[in-house]
Design a protein around this nucleic acid. Structure first.
Lengths: 215, 215, 215, 215
DNA sequence: AATGAATGAGGATTCATTCAT
DNA sequence: TATGAATGAATCCTCATTCAT
């Protein structure tokens, strides 16, 4: 009764359409979360933004949470790429960290939705958040390991590298909440005092060497 | 139109009972948020935990949000007191910061609910979160100003002190998410590597002075 | 164990205090209904306006509804008095009705709360509304009966007098909703066209006598 | 991205079912308001009467109020149609008004719920009430303008026509409260004395021409 | 595969009335 | 008698998910 090839298109074409729809949902979700937060990212809103029927959502994702949990890791990769590009070719490790720090804020500005997605994910998309943190931390870890191979960070033990990674991540993530976010979803560049304070901390610690020598 | 005081029970007795009920709601809310998060802290659950009728809630708080917003600042003061006690009498500024850092983690362990209350507040009780951050930052700020008066932190400019405050707050807050939280609401002490890495960073920065000189 | 006369004041003094409190609640209720409508006239608001504890309300009235039901009849008597004063000494029955009509609108302006109390009572205080209507109608009825005794309204049968009463009440009550109410609880005087149209209707009916003769 | 029409049931089938559900809610609401009043017309009751889940309500109406506000204008059009049919072909303007007056009461009897819906709407569905009043008044206005074009109502000025409209509306609306409503939601026909008194008023005013001349 | 209507549990809040003090 | 805290039923609305078409 049915004529298979006539009735439906080639499997690959189907696959393609499917991928497109998934991607559209992603895009829509990012926009919606950026504007309304995870809590406001109802399936209704997301599908509306993707110009799709509400029910169709469940063809592409098993649940609302599943999509939300993929959101951050996906954008996180963009962020990593952006930072990697910024770092390439910099001088000593602190110069490289400065590039990373600034690049992080640049990325926030370029992709303002990312700010909200990143910061809310911890509670609204915890699986996604963890995956993202692991991705970023692993990347950072590789960078610091290479730095150590080059002789830098010499006074930190092997076991201290991971904590160090989180301390550096802390610096940019936490301060971005304080210094980058402006009402209305706007994202500002970091004030220079923040960058310089950070760099001084990285170069010499809390106190100048002389002071530490005397103590 | 008003009656002599002998005619009805001391107003103070009522006041007292009232205070008790309010306090019970606070306690209950802290417990509930600790276990279920802010999102799960429905008025129904909170009043049930306080063994009280749902409607009674509104005798003590104008809204659910109002209570939730008071939660963190209140516990934050406890935290501040705990840290202040721990710091008193320590040596140089870095030793003091070590005490603060450790005391922060101690407090998390003593008051496991605080961990969740602190970290979720940013999104579920933003007013309370901001008040808390301001309280903590102001306190920190005073500490660093005193340190500078004693000659420490000499290479930071006046304008860099506030950023520095947030960098220090970042260190403990962000790493606690990674190192202190264990599933089931358990809170662990920080690994020694975290503390030592932090202290090295504060003493000498990323690279030992010699190394940085040579690079 | 008790010394009666020392402990409490004379019964009449008590009665007096009690009356005062009741009156205060009335006043308060009228104010509150005027501003917030019956629906917004919660016991809490009324007692607050009367500077009294919520619970005390039930010493003076068996229920919220009981007070609300007394409100309109009470104010209605004031209104009757006002209208009666205005009518006294006027000429023919239509001149008298003009006085009543205008006096009704004057009263609404003098007592703006009355407007709302009157119009909402039908649904929120139906017993009070019915009592009020009966009072007004009975008064009107007496006036028309006297008019008939003077030879006016000669073409109406005895049985048509009551309907007539309601037709006259209709005119002022219904048109006040349309022409007297202004947003913000303000009450305006009736436009002259309303009064003149009404009087023409009363003097000659819809069509001038000549016209009706010709038809 | 959209599918051929053969693939799923005709959209019209869905549309139809949807219309049916909306209509069912209307019907249910009219019944419920008729019996319990607007205040008792909870979404729970309405949906129960329409044999539908509570949540489904919001597929068809954005809010409870939105439905309630549509109720009266909708029924009002039915009423207008009923009255228009009754009036057609009557003689002079007063004969026509008699037809309208009687038709109004007939409609109340045919649709007993309308009585309550009409009278409570002023406070519980004010937007709907205003729309309804405007509809009715506009219709009336057209009728009187036509009458004037035919030479009737000659002694009223242009500016007095609108007030006149409201005086006529007043007559039927207000007296229906008194004469048509019976406990239990029953609606009675108007007593003949009401009709005759009304007509005498319209034909000759309060006093017969002779009497008024003599006074 | 796509649609969008249907579901129903769950949540915050209000308020008349009761009651212990 | 006066107080004001306590009660708990009732209400509107949201939304993830399911399901018939």
């Amino acid at each position: 009764m049915s004529a298979p090839s006539a009735r439906r298109s080639r499997p690959s074409a189907r696959r393609e359409r499917s991928e497109k729809a998934r991607a559209a949902l992603f895009e829509a979700a990012a926009r919606v979360v950026g504007r309304h937060g995870y809590a406001g990212a109802s399936v209704a809103r997301i599908t509306a933004a993707a110009r799709m029927a509400q029910g169709s959502f469940y063809t592409y994702f098993p649940s609302r949470q599943a999509l939300l949990d993929e959101l951050l890791p996906k954008l996180g990769e963009e962020m990593l790429a952006h930072i990697a590009a910024a770092v390439s070719g910099a001088g000593d490790e602190i110069a490289r960290e400065e590039r990373r720090f600034r690049a992080f804020f640049e990325f926030l500005q370029r992709r303002p939705a990312f700010f909200r997605i990143l910061h809310e994910a911890e509670f609204f998309a915890p699986r996604g958040f963890r995956r993202h943190i692991e991705n970023i931390a692993a990347d950072y870890r590789r960078a610091l390991d290479r730095a150590r191979a080059r002789g830098a960070l010499a006074h930190f033990t092997e076991a201290e590298v991971e904590p160090l990674v989180f301390l550096l991540m802390a610096a940019r993530s936490y301060t971005s909440m304080r210094y980058a976010y402006a009402p209305g979803g706007k994202v500002r560049p970091p004030p220079e005092e923040l960058v310089s304070a950070y760099l001084k901390l990285l170069r010499q610690g809390l106190d100048p060497p002389a002071a530490s020598a005397e103590s």
